[in-house]
């Protein structure tokens, strides 16, 4: 089944060159790093008892997702370097816009992560405030220590 699927894509692909292979290798390395980064960050959020560490891991988690989007938008243009999606000067004919399309990377993921980054910052600000307040109440940012100090039935009331 896998072979079928791969060959379905392979029909669309052009012949490979050395630089193509290099780019693919670099891309794969980056993707592997990203995937493991997500897993490690998530592990940190779920298992660390310290709230500050949880917070840092959470930020790492959202940021690695954003970097994933950058990779989705990336493209490999043999012979030229991919360019940012910005026109150099005011185009005088439609052909100049077409040349940008041939080299530009995908602008939509960049715009999306711009939004996602702002949202991440907003959440971080609020989380930091909450952690500060937690510290003021319990005197520690370690959730295990804080829960030990409580009387057992406070929750149920």
């Amino acid at each position: 089944m896998f072979l079928e699927r791969v060959s379905w894509r392979a029909s669309k692909r052009r012949p490979r060159y050395m630089s193509d292979l290099l780019a693919s290798l670099a891309f794969r390395t980056a993707m592997i790093a990203f995937v493991f980064n997500i897993a490690i960050a998530l592990y940190g959020v779920l298992s660390r008892p310290s709230l500050v560490k949880k917070f840092l891991c959470l930020v790492a988690f959202t940021d690695s997702i954003n970097i994933f989007a950058v990779f989705i938008g990336f493209r490999y243009t043999p012979g030229a370097y991919p360019s940012p999606p910005i026109l150099e000067a005011i185009p005088t004919s439609p052909a100049e816009v077409e040349t940008l399309i041939n080299t530009s990377v995908d602008p939509l993921p960049q715009a999306m992560i711009l939004t996602a980054i702002v949202i991440g910052i907003a959440c971080s600000i609020f989380l930091l405030t909450l952690i500060l307040m937690y510290y003021r109440h319990y005197g520690t940012t370690n959730i295990h220590e804080a829960e030990e100090g409580e009387e057992p039935h406070a929750e149920a009331l």
Binding site: L42, K54, L58, C123, L130, Y134, A146
Partner: peptide, 14 residues
């Protein structure tokens, strides 16, 4: 309340 909000916020952010 702070603890509930923290729980909600961290899990919600994930």
């Amino acid at each position: 309340a702070i603890r509930a909000a923290l729980r909600y916020a961290i899990s919600g952010m994930i």
